[in-house]
Nucleic acid binder design. Structure first.
Lengths: 204, 204
DNA sequence: GTCTATATTCTGATAGAC
DNA sequence: GTCTATCAGAATATAGAC
């Protein structure tokens, strides 16, 4: 009678290799851009040949898909790790904006993959897409607790914060030209949608 | 003694072919995306073979470059064709925002090419880049006439309007989910930077 | 699970005839 | 100015030995 081991060392090894592949893909994406992620490059980076990758992923698209899901899960984790929201709603909203902004500008390739474009034929699977929906729902809940409920108000929020991220990445990567105006942006938004509370900045 | 003709029919024909090539490239970009613009496709579309394109452009990159310059020049033309700015500064700013927004969402491929990303190795030449700078300077002048002068204020403007465009293109292409909130965006912005004048919308 | 070898397809670009 | 023919390279993916 053969006892089953309580750890599946083979599965663990497999999972480790999978992670290694994804890590390599991310590093290439950060270094040379998302389009530079080729099976050859990824394999070379971890001392493999490209056909070997097919043991771990069905296709190149499957690698992108795993990266997409991973990125959104990371963002979810970052939000989950935030300290409890401050009482003052404007402070809470600034914390949300700064957390998202920081995550986005920390890794251009990741941000591009998460928000489409740039990768020609890629479309996330349903499962991967669900991860992004979950984050959006979380954001909706947090804004709700600050008194923002209307869909139109949410739309404005996502647009202006995303716009700040885009400008920062495109025109001042590594700088803080838009970053440092986030408190102002939040004040402006809160005044419009009617979030009460003390101003974050002195008036102009 | 041979008189010089006052029209260079050969140069005219050349210019016409150049335009034909660019038009074909734009059509492919709109139909299948920027990355689908290949020399073969472009040539096929106008009944040519790809090597023939090299008679008119030095490289594929030169085609992208001409498209880039063309797009910014078009935007310049659109701004130049605007009726005189209304007296009320907020009305003037709304007209600016709507004009830019309309131009941007009318052609996703064009917007993507103008604002980088998506095209792997492309970087505009100095000459082409100058066209985009000219548009930015024009925008700066128009905002100045509305009382917006500080660089920080301009930065906020470009970010929030660009953010609206991105959201519209990404999440509701062909719709007006963000488009219809432009008056509100302008009010919000004007309140923050201190542009006077009657509200564009009734208060929430 | 990883390898070599190879298929297939597509890319931008060049040489040289007409 | 346009063509045919071709190059050189890269991409994803598969077959089958070890």
């Amino acid at each position: 009678m053969s006892a089953l081991p309580n750890r599946d060392r083979r599965a663990e090894r497999r999972e480790a290799t999978r992670r290694e592949i994804l890590d390599a893909a991310w590093e290439i994406a950060r270094r040379e851009g998302l389009s530079a992620v080729t099976l050859r490059e990824v394999a070379a980076q971890i001392g493999m040949r490209s056909p070997s990758l097919y043991t771990h992923f069905d296709s190149k698209s499957a690698i992108y898909d795993a990266m997409f899901a991973q990125a959104w899960t990371e963002l979810q984790d970052v939000f989950d790790a935030m300290p409890p929201q401050p009482e003052a709603p404007r402070r809470a909203m600034l914390a949300l904006a700064e957390t998202f902004f920081g995550f986005a500008v920390a890794d251009l390739a990741r941000y591009q993959l998460m928000n489409q474009r740039t990768v020609p034929g890629f479309q996330p699977s349903e499962a991967a897409y669900a991860a992004s929906v979950a984050v959006y729902e979380g954001m909706r809940g947090r804004l709700r607790r600050c008194g923002v409920r209307a869909q139109a108000d949410l739309d404005v929020w996502t647009a202006i914060v995303g716009g700040f991220v885009d400008q920062q990445l495109a025109n001042d990567p590594g700088g803080s030209r838009w970053r440092r105006q986030l408190p102002r942006l939040v004040d402006m938004y809160c005044a419009e949608v009617g979030v009460p509370g003390p101003q974050l900045r002195r008036s102009r």
